[in-house]
Design a protein around this nucleic acid. Structure first.
Length: 453
RNA sequence: GUGGUUGUAGUUCAGUUGGUUAGAACGCCUGAUUGUGGUUCAGGAGGUCGUGGGUUCAAAUCCCAUCUUCCACCCCA
């Protein structure tokens, strides 16, 4: 045990079985992204540390993995600095690169860097791992995948509509029932303004976001802690307890924030988005949820979150509109809207509910049993032909005992085995065995190809 | 960053108040079965008890440190 090697905290190996399942999810997401005309982008695992720092708040900076400079990484550090042991100050001296923390900031960097080559609006999707030096726990890893799609350079609410359509299609294809929650940051901003604390929008959203997790009382407590007066909190109550139909909710909101400028914009946007949504039929529930806030500070318009109806695991997909993502890199006035699927959590849900199709893990269709040199030579050309016909297949490389070979096929879930010995070779045929039913039949190579296609 | 928790075979776990050679199940390998996997039966391999130090005649067991696992908080996907 002490001698067996391991992997770093919060990381995982993906066995062929798990990877097959994960790819099943990725392929569905990827196909939907492509169908909606998003094009794939990849960025390097590492970015310049200066690109990453300061984008995720102070907490986020702490969670960045930094890469030690090559060579003498202490070259730039002076003796007094070394004595001081101020790691925060020293970090940029010994590390100039860091692992990406999400896909959005590298995307923003890409857009700004290549702004002259890009034709706007620009639609891209990106499926890559990200790294966070977080303390791992349930559903939380130091290396995990994000599946992002963003459109940047368009204010149209058609983009929001399409985001919802994509979400609906992905989860329909995955055979999962979900609820798509929609809100708008401008509504929240209107509320903050109305209760007299426009500058507390972030505190307000962070607190409201926890409503279904910690309950009303604790939310009030957080709001008080943030310095919001009891009067204002009481004033807020009807909004937090909002229910009923979309129209009821909108009426109530209108009464509440109808006089604030941002609030009105929020109402117009939300009503327009829902009027688009009304044009189509969706397989999943779509609801307006005023308590949906989402932590990310850069959202400015519509926000989305998806939760499973069948299992409690938190949000499995989220996104929203941001008006100034590239501003931090000096490119102003580019609005975008994006969505991110949490592949790892979707995996957990699928696994829990047993929703992966049976044949996900077995990509190999057939194995030739190896009886010896003469038989190998008889099988190899046929194997080649199967492969040319797009049938994933293999021959057991050694003429080991039959039992060992069958066991190999069995444990790798290979559905068919082909046997060719003296008898078969004389007739120029193969015995094709169905591993599941145990049935066997004598067939020609052509018949075998036909049976497996 | 804070609090708790875990560590013994490939895996999941037993292991008494400290006391002979540390066990089980599953998995793996071999055989029963020289052209047939899953079932059955028999046999076999596999452990520096996370690591380092301490207490003791004696430590998987007690103490300290450290690493690790998992969980909650903060934050987040």
């Amino acid at each position: 045990m002490a001698n067996t090697p391991g992997i770093p905290k919060g990381t995982r190996d993906f066995s062929p079985e798990i990877l097959a399942k994960r790819n099943y999810i990725f392929d569905i997401i990827k196909d939907v992204f492509k169908k909606f005309a998003y094009r794939q982008l990849e960025t390097p695992a590492m970015e310049n540390l200066s690109t990453l720092t300061g984008k995720y708040g102070e907490e986020g900076d702490k969670l960045l993995f930094k890469i030690l400079n090559s060579g003498n990484f202490l070259k730039k550090v002076t003796d007094p600095e070394l004595q001081e042991r101020d790691t925060k100050k020293m970090a940029h001296l010994v590390a100039e690169k860091g692992l990406r923390y999400d896909l959005t900031v590298p995307f923003a960097r890409y857009v700004v860097q290549h702004q002259n080559e890009i034709t706007f609006p620009f639609k891209r999707f990106q499926i890559q791992p990200v790294w966070r030096a977080d303390r791992p726990q349930k559903g939380r890893y130091r290396e995990f995948y994000q599946c992002d799609a963003d459109i940047i350079g368009s204010y149209s609410l058609i983009n929001e509509l399409e985001i919802v359509q994509m979400i609906d299609e992905v989860f329909t294809k995955l055979n999962l029932e979900v609820t798509i929650k929609i809100n708008n940051r401008k509504l929240l901003a209107g509320i903050a303004e109305r209760i007299g604390y426009p500058e507390k929008l972030i505190d307000l959203t962070v607190a409201i976001d926890k409503l279904d997790k910690i309950g009303l009382e604790k939310v009030y407590e957080e709001l008080r802690l943030a310095g919001i007066s009891d009067d204002a909190i009481n004033f807020l109550e009807p909004i937090l307890n909002l229910g009923g139909s979309f129209n009821d909710q909108m009426q109530c909101i209108e009464r509440f924030i109808g006089e604030t400028e941002t609030g009105v914009t929020g109402i117009v946007e939300t009503e327009k988005l829902f009027s688009y949504l009304d044009m189509f039929k969706f397989n999943n529930n779509i609801e307006l949820d005023l308590t949906l806030a989402r932590g990310l500070t850069y959202y400015t318009g519509a926000i989305f979150e998806v939760i499973s109806d069948e299992i409690q695991i938190g949000s499995i997909c989220g996104g929203g509109r941001y008006d100034d993502l590239t501003g931090i890199f000096g490119l102003k006035g580019v609005s975008g809207v994006g969505i991110s699927f949490g592949a790892d959590r979707i995996f957990d849900v699928m696994e829990n509910l047993n929703r992966f199709p049976e044949d996900t893990t077995s990509s190999v269709k057939l194995m030739f049993v190896n009886f010896g040199q003469k038989e190998e030579k008889y099988c190899l050309p046929v194997l080649q032909k199967l492969r040319q016909n797009g049938i994933n297949s293999e021959i057991f490389p050694d003429s080991s005992k039959m039992k060992k070979q069958m066991k190999y096929a069995n444990s790798n879930k290979i559905p068919y085995v082909a046997l060719a010995g003296e008898n078969e070779m004389q007739e120029n045929k193969f015995t094709l065995k169905n591993m599941e039913t145990g049935e066997q039949q004598l067939v020609t190579a052509a018949e075998m190809i036909k049976a497996l296609t």
